[in-house]
Structure formats: structure tokens, C-alpha cells
């Protein structure tokens, strides 16, 4: 499933969509950045509630397919601009990280 495909369902909303055709091959949930660095795999959708600018470098370096901000968390306009400039896909989800993972499980 691609990031665009995920958006079609309507549960996930695009905040920064730069590479919609990126394939999602797995999921990682975590808010502690070094855990994500150590565990997330290339192509993962990374579900988190963290919204500071450092998540962009983590996403870039782990090569995840997209960041999914759960619990209705969003990014500031400035960080959203940075995400677009850095080519990072960022989606939002109104429910919990668990609910986001359940939705992904049905779609992947």
C-alpha cells in the first residue's frame, strides 16, 4: 500500500505530502527518538505523538515511508514547511496510536 492509498480511506489526513507513491512496508510506534532510530525499518509508517522538528531528521535517517501523528497532534506551520522542504511525508490521525495501527493493519 502506498501513502496515497492510505489517504484514500479518509482516516488519515495529509499534512506534508511529497512522495505519495512511497510504499509502506511496515509500522513502528514510538515516541522516544533513540528507540525509533534503533528499531524503525526503512519503509515503515512511523506512528508518534512527538511533533518537534527533530522527528524530521529521525524520519529521514530511518528512511520511513511517512510519519503519522496520532491523537490529533499536528505540526506548526514552520515545521510543516520544513517537512515539505526535506521531502518527508507527514500524516495526521485523530485517534490513538493503537487505533492508527489497527487501521493500518486492515489496509496493509
Amino acid at each position: 500500500m502506498t501513502v496515497n492509498g492510505l489517504l484514500e480511506g479518509g482516516d488519515f489526513k495529509a499534512l506534508s505530502l511529497v512522495e505519495g507513491e512511497r510504499e509502506i512496508s511496515g509500522v513502528y510506534i514510538g515516541d522516544l527518538l533513540s528507540w525509533v532510530m534503533g528499531k524503525a525499518k526503512s519503509g515503515d509508517a512511523w506512528i508518534t505523538i512527538m511533533s518537534n522538528v527533530n522527528i524530521l531528521a529521525v524520519a529521514a535517517l530511518t528512511d520511513c515511508a511517512c510519519i503519522i501523528l496520532s491523537e490529533g497532534v499536528t505540526l506548526t506551520e514552520e515545521i510543516t514547511r520544513t517537512a515539505k522542504a526535506k521531502g518527508i511525508n507527514v500524516l495526521t490521525f485523530s485517534g490513538s496510536s493503537y487505533d492508527a495501527a489497527v487501521s493500518l493493519e486492515k489496509l496493509l
Binding site: L32, L33, S34, W35, M37, G38, M50, N52, N54, I55
Partner: peptide, 15 residues
Amino acid sequence: SLGFGAGMGLPNMKR
């Protein structure tokens, strides 16, 4: 509060 401080950085570097 920024998400750092899990104490996993040096172990990741080693790994």
C-alpha cells in the same frame, strides 16, 4: 520532553 534521553544513543552507535 523532546523525545531524547532514552539512554539508547550510545548502544545504537555500538549496534
